[in-house]
């Protein structure tokens, strides 16, 4: 009686140890590395390599995010839309209170001031400015990521950042209290 009990206990223990070892080994050898997450995060970035987050480029910021070393609110061109998708992806709560007043922006050239020097064109990493030497430069809004790198290089201060017009693609359901406190007349916010 005692012998059969011991056999049962012994065999189950042996099975437990064996399966546990296999599972442990599998977890170690077949472990999915962190890089797929990093790749996914990188794909979510605007990809304009503007450096406003403080990292060299989008890939470096994605790597820091994957390791949990950087806050998810640093990407200015990505705006609130990116922060929200990042917070869903990473399961991190985002503090959006400080960002509310500044929606996504794009560059805009004041035509009376443009002297056609092409400095902004050379600065643009998304080819969003078209123009040539001594001819009018124009922002292609669709291609502009709002990194504002072109603003400081303009010798005549002809470039300013303006809010992106709300379209069906970037429209965001506003929270009632946010709408009441932050909506100014005549200003279109793209939340």
């Amino acid at each position: 009686m005692i012998a059969s009990m011991l056999i049962a206990i012994g065999s189950l223990t042996a099975i437990g140890i064996a399966l546990g070892t296999i599972l442990g080994a599998a977890a170690r050898y077949f472990a999915v590395k962190e890089s797929p997450l990093e790749e996914e995060l990188k794909a979510m970035m605007p990809g304009s390599q503007c450096g406003q987050c403080g990292f060299v480029g989008c890939a470096q910021y994605a790597a820091a995010l994957a390791k949990g070393e950087a806050p998810i609110t640093l990407c200015a061109p990505g705006g609130k839309v990116l922060i929200e998708s990042l917070s869903q992806k990473l399961g991190v709560a985002a503090d959006l209170s400080g960002l509310e007043e500044k929606g996504p922006e794009h560059a805009f050239i004041i035509e009376d001031l443009c002297i056609g020097c092409t400095r902004c064109i050379r600065e643009c990493s998304t080819d969003a400015i078209m123009g040539a030497n001594k001819l009018m430069h124009t922002i292609i809004v669709e291609a502009c990521h709002g990194c504002s790198k072109c603003v400081p290089v303009c010798p005549t201060d002809a470039i300013m950042m303006v809010p992106v017009k709300v379209t069906l693609r970037n429209w965001h359901w506003p929270k009632p209290e946010v709408e009441n406190t932050h909506t100014e007349p005549g200003v279109v916010h793209a939340h």
Partner: peptide, 13 residues
């Protein structure tokens, strides 16, 4: 790219 002329005179500016 089809360009438009400048509106400002660079020298004058």
């Amino acid at each position: 790219e089809i360009y438009r002329p400048l509106r400002a005179d660079p020298k004058e500016a």
